[in-house]
Structures are given as structure tokens and as C-alpha cells.
């Protein structure tokens, strides 16, 4: 008899886990809270992915296609795990959607509930939602996906754009002390895309550190050396309105030790990643541990980052911390392997 494995979350990690398990002949039940697959990349219409600028559809679209084509993956859209109980070495889960709810027994579980973009409106100093021309990286990504890079306020091409890093990350004031890892690279990528789209538009990046780790550094170098993106050291402390429908970034240039108040046409906030409300929720429901940052806690961050503290429940993707899409896909595969091994052992 084939194993039954539950995958919670249909983003890059969950999709890859489900697909790999289906290839092993496992019956996969995929629970997705939205009415579509693909997670945040799909929801916010990411257009091109770093580091090689390939269309997001090449990756996300491919994962969705594979999952949909597999005969043994049962996708439950707009649904959630409403009740969860251990049953010996197995698990009984109630999967609830708008019109029905059913109880099933699973051999093992993969949690891939992902992350939420930090909502910059929570940090009032950035005046997000107050000014139309203050947007964040997910908004810009969506605008790019919709082929509309014009200023939200007046529909004109921007001439001067600021990217502000570490919004909602590395800031005790908003309660997030961690680095969200990908926002630097995303911002650099978007600055390149912006300069490519509007060669007359100046792009500035306000930074404290630029953390384009590993080979993502190539993109950072490219942005400066080929696209003349200017980096300015200092975190912006306030965004106010300026004359001629501009927004003013106020901060300190820490290299010259002088204050600045510069007018921009558009400001892009590099908002970070958060565990979202789903992480504590799933942690409570499944009885797995939550860490101090609001993400799910792996059993051992180095040895088994894909395992929860409970046997038979595995973790994959950004639910355990900020992560690039490639890392989520890798973890999806790792969790699939472990969930399968557990299921076979306890057959």
C-alpha cells in the first residue's frame, strides 16, 4: 500500500516536496490556503528571479505544472488543517475548506507554510500608504509583473528613485532583529531592471550593509559597474512630502557625517520577511516549536534544519526563516526524503 503524506503549503518548497514524493509513488495531500498554487512568488507576481534574471514563471510555473500533472497529488485549494492529532506514529488531520471537511490519516507531514512580507505601514517613519510614491519591493515586483513601472501618483516615468534597505529587518523598534537575507539582492536586481527600463532614471540605494551573499555579489557589482546604481551609506529615518509631488528621504550620510534631505520621485522600501500569523498558528496546531523570531524552529539548525522537534513532522522553506527561492526548493527535496524515510520505517 502506498504511503500517505500531508504537505501544508503550496509554495516553492511545498510544491517541490509534493512532486518528489509523488515520483516516489506516495499519495500526497497538498493543503493550500489560497485558491492557486505557487505561494508568495505567484501571489505577488514576481517577474524575474535573481541571480540570473530568469523569468519567475520558468521556476514557479514549472513547479506548478509538475505538481498538477502528477496523478497522485491531491490539491486542496482554499483550505486549511483545522484539527491535528497524533495517532501512534501516524497523524490524523482534518482538512477543512469552505464547503467540506474530511479527516485523513497520514504517515508523515511536511510543513511548508512560508513567510509573509513585512508590512511597511507598521513602521510609520517610512510613510508607506501615506504617499502613493512610497512603495515596497513586492509592490514594485508586482508592477514589473504587470509591465507598469510608472509612478503610482501620476503615471509618469520616475527620474530619481531611492531604494531603502532593511525595512522591517534588523530593527528592534519593529521587533525584527534578524536579517531577511534576500532583500539586498532583490533591491539590487530591481535597481538594475529599473535602469534598464528607464536609462534616464537615477537609482540610489540607502544601506547600512549590503548583504548580497555568495554569488549574488555578482549582481551587486553589476548594478554599480554596468548600471551606475549609486549606493549611499545611511539608513533613512523619515520620509516626508516634498515640493513638485516628490517624497523626501531624510537621513545621515555616515561616510561624510552629514545630514541629507533628498527629493525622490519614488521610494522603494526593501521590506523583509516575517513568519506571519500562520507560523504561530501551525506551531500551536501541530505542537511544534516556534523560535524567538516568529518562525518555526528546526530540531537542529545545522544538522537537521528540515526537521521539527516532533518526529514525523518536517519543515521546508521560508517557514523556518528568510530564504531565497532556490533554498526553499532544496529544502523541499530534503524534507520529502526525510518524510518518506519516516513513513516507510513506520509502515
Amino acid at each position: 500500500m502506498a504511503e500517505n503524506i500531508l504537505v501544508i503549503g503550496g509554495g516553492p518548497a511545498g510544491l517541490n516536496a509534493a512532486t518528489m514524493l509523488s515520483e516516489l509513488g506516495v499519495n500526497v495531500t497538498l493543503v493550500e490556503r489560497d485558491s492557486f498554487l505557487g505561494g508568495n512568488p505567484k501571489k505577488f507576481k514576481y517577474k524575474f528571479l535573481f541571480p540570473d534574471m530568469q523569468p519567475a514563471d520558468n521556476v514557479i510555473g514549472e513547479l506548478i505544472k509538475k505538481a498538477e500533472a502528477a496523478g497522485n497529488i491531491k490539491v486542496n485549494y482554499s483550505s486549511e488543517v483545522s484539527d491535528f492529532k497524533e495517532n501512534g506514529k501516524k497523524f490524523d488531520a482534518t482538512i477543512k475548506s469552505a464547503d467540506k471537511s474530511e479527516i485523513k490519516t497520514f504517515d508523515s507531514v511536511i510543513v511548508a507554510t512560508g513567510f509573509e512580507h513585512f508590512d511597511p505601514a507598521r513602521d510609520a517613519k517610512y510613510s508607506y500608504q501615506l504617499f502613493d510614491d512610497v512603495i515596497d519591493i513586492k509592490d514594485l515586483e508586482r508592477m514589473m509583473g504587470e509591465n507598469n513601472l510608472l509612478r503610482p501618483s501620476n503615471g509618469k516615468p520616475p527620474k530619481k528613485v531611492a531604494f531603502i534597505l532593511c525595512v522591517g529587518s534588523r530593527d528592534r523598534h519593529v521587533g525584527n532583529q534578524y536579517c531577511s537575507r534576500v532583500c539586498c539582492t532583490v533591491s539590487v536586481k530591481q535597481a538594475i531592471e529599473l535602469r534598464e527600463h528607464f536609462p534616464d532614471c537615477e537609482a540610489y540605494i540607502f544601506y547600512m550593509d549590503i548583504r548580497t551573499y555568495g554569488f549574488f555579489e555578482d549582481l551587486y557589482w553589476k548594478s554599480m559597474e554596468e548600471y551606475d546604481v549609486q549606493i549611499v551609506k545611511g539608513r533613512v529615518a523619515e520620509i516626508t512630502s516634498g515640493p513638485d509631488n516628490t517624497v523626501v528621504c531624510k537621513g545621515e550620510d555616515t561616510l561624510l557625517r552629514g545630514p541629507f534631505e533628498i527629493q525622490f520621485d519614488m521610494v522603494v522600501l526593501a521590506s523583509g520577511m516575517e513568519g506571519g500569523p500562520q507560523s504561530p498558528e501551525i506551531s500551536k496546531k501541530l505542537g511544534i516549536e516556534l523560535d524567538e523570531h516568529g518562525f518555526l524552529k528546526p530540531e537542529n539548525v545545522t544538522l537537521s534544519p528540515f526537521k521539527s522537534n516532533k518526529d514525523g513532522i518536517f519543515l521546508a522553506g521560508a517557514c523556518t526563516g528568510p530564504k531565497a527561492i532556490s533554498d526553499s526548493i532544496t529544502e523541499g527535496a530534503a524534507a520529502a526524503m526525510n518524510a518518506y524515510t519516516y513513513a516507510v520505517k513506520n509502515r
Partner: peptide, 16 residues
């Protein structure tokens, strides 16, 4: 005021 209120990119382009 000590505040810088402009980044003059034309200057950068000239140097480049």
C-alpha cells in the same frame, strides 16, 4: 543649514 539637499548626478557623469 548643514543638510545636503541634492545629489548632483551630472557631476558623476562628467567625471565618468
Amino acid at each position: 543649514s548643514r543638510v545636503d539637499s541634492e545629489f548632483d548626478r551630472s557631476f558623476f557623469n562628467e567625471i565618468k
